[in-house]
Design a protein around this nucleic acid. Structure first.
Lengths: 141, 141
DNA sequence: ATATATAGTTACTAATTGAGACCATGTTTA
DNA sequence: TAAACATGGTCTCAATTAGTAACTATATAT
């Protein structure tokens, strides 16, 4: 887990104008934007967060919910989410052992803003796909 | 730009419960969540979106705003954002030529939900960093 | 006895990203 | 007049990251 790089104070300053809701309190020494986006922005995290947002899941359930994730990446992504304090892991000493993953309170607090973005994604999906077609066509011309 | 994989209809169904605001209309044939997150969720897109959300930028300005992006990735990420219809590119035939990038209306429409997530990131950044320390410590023990 | 399910790990390979040199043009500096 | 610099890139190659497939261990069902 590499220390994410920063963005310029200038950009932070500029963001302040856009991020009115942030409360004017942006720690410019460490960049929260990428520190967080580098994680939930990776290929699988947001998907797993959405899955776990519906209810706790066992390892195998998550694998079935996101069928094209590899076991390796599932393990790794869950560990990262756990490290970030967004997901908690509970082992039940059954046989075979079962492991349940669920959102922590902090993880749950991320869901509303995350879902806002998902909502946008769902609403604009068709437009984006069309834009890609248009772009491909104009590039070919 | 590889065709992103889907998530299961079951998960889509589950998301429906969480994504009340989505209006119950989720196209299960293509997965909007990852189709969008695969893009704005990559290492640089959200950062560039935030930068462009403040005002239009020239190529070099963006490079200075996000100083640790390589020129190669800046070009590539901008092309991808352009292909998705989030960013538009305007060449001015000055000498040397100058190129301005700005958000499209669709790009602008993404800013409020994106900023909600940024706001969350800023507010929870300290907690996340602390969680990582705790996790590293508990793993070492 | 074999197959299946559990939750992973490990080694190897493929894909993505990053670092840095290079390009063309014209303007400023020495 | 020549060298240096700024523009917005591209190209090649090395490093990082992700994905594939095989393997682990134990217990239950067939």
């Amino acid at each position: 887990m590499k220390e994410p790089p920063y963005i310029t104070p200038e950009l932070h300053e500029a963001m302040r104008g856009v991020m009115v809701y942030v409360g004017g309190k942006i720690d410019s020494s460490k960049c929260p934007v990428r520190d967080v986006m580098d994680h939930i922005g990776d290929k699988w995290s947001s998907l797993l967060m959405v899955a776990l947002g519906t209810r706790p899941h066992r390892f195998g359930e998550l694998k079935r919910a996101v069928p094209d994730i590899s076991q390796r990446m599932l393990t790794q992504t869950l560990r990262d989410l756990q490290a970030d304090g967004l997901v908690s892991r509970h082992v039940f000493p059954t046989v075979p052992p079962s492991v349940e993953y669920r959102l922590t309170p902090m993880g749950e607090s991320m869901m509303p803003p995350l879902m806002e973005l998902m909502k946008w994604a769902a609403e604009n999906h068709a437009r984006i796909r069309q834009a890609r077609l248009d772009f491909a066509e104009s590039a070919a011309a």
